[in-house]
Amino acid sequence: MRLLYFAWLKTKMGRAEEEVDPPAEVTDVASLLEWLRGRGPVYAEALSDLSVVRVAVNQEYARLDAPVNKDDEVALFPPVTGG
């Protein structure tokens, strides 16, 4: 699974993207975020307030119950501020 980070999430994570291999219990966005938070203090801190984290799966906005699998591109980013 390819993870992409944008804006302050990229800054906090210290990287723009990474390849991850989540365990079988990661089946949707919610369980993916929970698993990521358990990977270490940097992840836990960056994902401590999910009200300011938006998720896209394969470049489409996704809710917490949206399914994810190992071939997906999952992006985590703050609420958008363009325009």
């Binding site: 944008f6 804006a7 992006a75 980013f77 609420p79 958008v80 501020t81 363009g82 325009g83």
Partner: peptide, 14 residues
């Protein structure tokens, strides 16, 4: 278009 773009298009200002 500008109202929706501001809340949906994935751009971030620094």
């Amino acid at each position: 278009l500008i109202d929706w773009l501001k809340t949906k298009a994935p751009f971030w200002k620094k």
